[in-house]
Amino acid sequence: MPKKERKRLQVVISEEQDALLTRTAYELSSPERLISKSEVVRLAIEKIAQELGEGDHLDQYRALLDTEGVTDES
């Protein structure tokens, strides 16, 4: 069976965001299965998309994106 092709995305995150990502991966991990930071990001994308599809939290996400810690550094 051929391996599923995935797209790669590189983003710049702050040290605080990396620490949150690491802590989240650690908390989701169990002795039987370690969760990677990439898996946490994929989970977050799916969760946000699901909530937006249901019309939930739209204003909250927009407010978060307006804060300095979440914006792109172009």
Rank of each mutant, 00 (worst) to 15 (best):
residue 74 S to H: 03
residue 45 I to C: 13
residue 73 E to R: 15
residue 17 Q to F: 03
residue 56 D to A: 09
residue 46 E to H: 05
residue 5 E to R: 12
residue 6 R to D: 12
residue 39 E to H: 07
residue 74 S to W: 02
residue 1 M to Y: 11
residue 68 E to W: 13
residue 11 V to Q: 11
residue 1 M to F: 06
residue 24 T to I: 02
residue 70 V to R: 04
residue 62 R to C: 11
residue 4 K to P: 14
residue 57 H to A: 07
residue 33 R to F: 01
residue 56 D to R: 15
residue 2 P to A: 11
residue 23 R to G: 01
residue 61 Y to M: 00
residue 25 A to M: 06
residue 21 L to H: 02
residue 43 L to Q: 04
residue 64 L to H: 07
residue 62 R to Y: 04
residue 53 G to H: 06
residue 36 S to N: 07
residue 32 E to P: 00
residue 50 Q to R: 14
residue 51 E to M: 12
residue 17 Q to P: 00
residue 69 G to E: 13
residue 22 T to S: 10
residue 37 K to Q: 15
residue 16 E to S: 13
residue 54 E to M: 09
residue 3 K to Q: 15
residue 5 E to P: 08
residue 61 Y to C: 02
residue 52 L to A: 06
residue 36 S to Y: 02
residue 47 K to G: 01
residue 27 E to K: 05
residue 21 L to P: 01
residue 1 M to N: 15
residue 23 R to K: 07
residue 15 E to L: 09
residue 20 L to A: 07
residue 27 E to R: 05
residue 18 D to G: 01
residue 32 E to F: 02
residue 36 S to T: 14
residue 35 I to A: 00
residue 8 R to Q: 12
residue 7 K to W: 04
residue 28 L to K: 09
residue 64 L to R: 06
residue 22 T to Q: 02
residue 42 R to D: 15
residue 63 A to C: 04
residue 54 E to D: 02
residue 6 R to Q: 07
residue 59 D to E: 10
residue 51 E to Y: 05
